[in-house]
């Protein structure tokens, strides 16, 4: 269970969010550009610091302004897929996926077995030696996801994980993404601008407006939110 109750002053408005996400639940976070979605993910991951509040994961406090707790990102055990995927360009696909295991000082044998499992499952074993900058957008997305999942995270954060893919690949990836995330059985937050992502992947949806949760509901209800939802034309088709 992820519990968030944080405040942070941003340039144009105050971000103030209170949320609870259960084990295995996928929350789809939607909202206009600049409404604070990525900032919220960064606060949870520890990459930015809230002004006040509390973030707890399974009763483990990641941040608590009253208790003066602020766990550093590397100790939070959160799988984060960045919007641009943020793959390390100087490393191979194999080394990118193995990175999180090496920082945890696993043995070479353990790393080999785990990376092989994840690359096989993602259909990436054949391109394991390719440099991360030389692979296609779809492959990059799968490498980024495998890199985030291999560390067995307690929480998953995905910032527009399908936005860099073309429409055909997006459709194929949605089911795959939902299956993989559900298999982890951890709370997950996915930021998206696409209505089809919300209905195909999510268990619940939240609309963020100027740093505050304006609406919450089932993925199917999102259609009824009407003009408040900032989806593009392709998203509402």
């Amino acid at each position: 269970m992820l519990e968030i109750d944080v405040k942070k002053k941003l340039r144009d408005f105050d971000l103030q969010v209170k949320l609870r996400i259960a084990e295995g639940e996928i929350l789809m976070l939607v909202g206009d550009n600049g409404c604070g979605k990525t900032t919220l993910l960064n606060l949870i991951a520890g990459l930015q610091c809230p002004d006040s509040g509390r973030i707890a994961l399974d009763s483990r406090a990641l941040f608590d302004s009253e208790l003066k707790v602020n766990m550093i990102p590397e100790e939070r055990n959160i799988g984060y897929v960045f919007q641009s995927y943020a793959l390390f360009p100087h490393m191979s696909v194999y080394d990118n996926v193995a990175f999180g295991l090496r920082t945890r000082r696993l043995s070479r044998r353990e790393i080999e077995l785990l990376v092989k499992d994840h690359l096989d499952e993602a259909g990436l074993w054949d391109i394991r030696k390719a440099k991360a900058i030389d692979i296609s957008g779809g492959q990059k997305q799968r490498v980024a996801l495998a890199r985030a999942l291999i560390i067995e995270p307690d929480l998953l954060l995905l910032d527009e994980p399908l936005s860099a893919l073309d429409v055909r690949k997006q459709a194929a990836m949605r089911k795959d993404l939902r299956k993989k995330i559900h298999a982890c059985n951890v709370p997950s937050i996915i930021v998206t601008h696409d209505l089809r992502d919300v209905s195909c992947i999510g268990d619940r949806a939240c609309l963020l407006e100027k740093g505050k949760i304006a609406l919450t509901g089932e993925p199917d209800e999102v259609m009824s939110w009407g003009s408040q939802v900032p989806f593009g034309r392709e998203g509402s088709n």
Partner: peptide, 11 residues
């Protein structure tokens, strides 16, 4: 984001 990615991966 490369730096951030490395840190969320435990570095």
């Amino acid at each position: 984001s490369m730096e951030n990615a490395a840190r969320t991966l435990g570095a």
